[in-house]
């Protein structure tokens, strides 16, 4: 067919489209050059954005200016099947040799498939930790226990003097510092100010508590000097260390568990048992 002569509007649209595609190509070249020169995230991003934006603008102008929009109708046959057709399909299932009529066999098949399905669930159990104790038990036990020494973040055992007043020292059980439920902190407070004694006892004001928030388990590391309060960064629960680490604000409901400590014969701090309660968030069988 013969090419019709374009209208001025079409010509201007075509020029814009070509321009947009040229800009896009320039963006692509720019990306390659940026990458070749050693790469810079910002310029790479800008170049790619320009490349794709050029494509988008070109295609959009093309779609809006050079292609007719609207004016079509498509029929919609709906989803109500002709009754005769539906009846015929139903008849197929009701035929004498149809498997759906053998109820006894179907029941047996159903039983076999159910058994297979249940059996297929068993391998899921392998996803549980094999070599460990049952999960609720594991949550209650921590690496702390009688005689476990307190070490700092570098693994150095701590003496009582290593915990000065008005600071917070993170402490870990010697030998297992990376355990998720073990982190604790030591602070030195004025015993006169205790309105409620710490659950794990104290050594002349030196107290050790679990670091894990009793709400959702985040490390309660925001220590507010002078107030005796610690704050959780995740949901802003705050605990009053002077009142037995009671939860005083925010969504936490239970106090922080304490860690009973003593000074060993070597002069280093050591635990005399596990936390006074399972550390961290609550669970169904938590005592």
């Amino acid at each position: 067919m013969r090419r019709p002569t374009p209208s001025p509007a079409e010509e201007s649209a075509s020029r814009r489209i070509v321009g947009a595609f040229l800009v896009s190509a320039a963006g692509a070249v720019g990306f390659a050059v940026t990458y070749g020169l050693g790469g810079d995230t910002r310029w790479e991003g800008v170049c790619l954005a320009v490349a794709f934006a050029g494509l988008a603008v070109g295609l959009a102008v093309w779609a809006r200016r050079l292609v007719p929009v609207g004016g079509y109708v498509e029929e919609h046959e709906g989803f109500t099947p002709p009754p005769a057709e539906q009846a015929m399909t139903a008849a197929e299932f009701a035929a004498p040799d149809s498997p759906t009529r053998r109820y006894g066999l179907l029941a047996a098949l159903g039983f076999a498939l159910t058994a297979l399905g249940v059996a297929a669930l068993f391998p899921l159990r392998s996803l549980l930790p094999w070599d460990r104790v049952r999960p609720p038990r594991a949550l209650k036990d921590t690496p702390w226990g009688a005689g476990v020494r307190l070490v700092d973040g570098t693994g150095r055992p701590l003496r009582p003097d290593d915990v000065p007043a008005e600071t917070m020292v993170a402490v870990f059980p010697e030998g297992d510092p990376d355990a998720g439920d073990a982190p604790a902190f030591a602070v030195r407070l004025d015993p006169e100010r205790f309105s409620r004694p710490p659950a794990g006892g104290h050594l002349g004001g030196l107290v050790v508590w679990s670091m894990l928030c009793t709400h959702a388990g985040c490390p309660v590391r925001l220590y507010l000097k002078g107030t005796g309060r610690v704050l959780c960064p995740c949901h802003q629960s705050s605990f009053d260390l002077l009142a037995g680490a009671r939860a005083v604000a925010g969504p936490a409901a239970r106090p922080l568990p304490g860690l009973p400590i003593e000074v060993g014969p070597d002069g280093f701090l050591r635990a005399t048992g596990d936390f006074t309660a399972p550390p961290g968030a609550g669970f169904w069988s938590r005592p």
């Binding site: 290593d162 000065p164 008005e166 600071t167 917070m168 000097k225 002078g226």
Partner: peptide, 13 residues
Amino acid sequence: VGPGLMPAFPGQV
């Protein structure tokens, strides 16, 4: 020093 609410970190820490 530990100004305000900030805990101080003396030499032994």
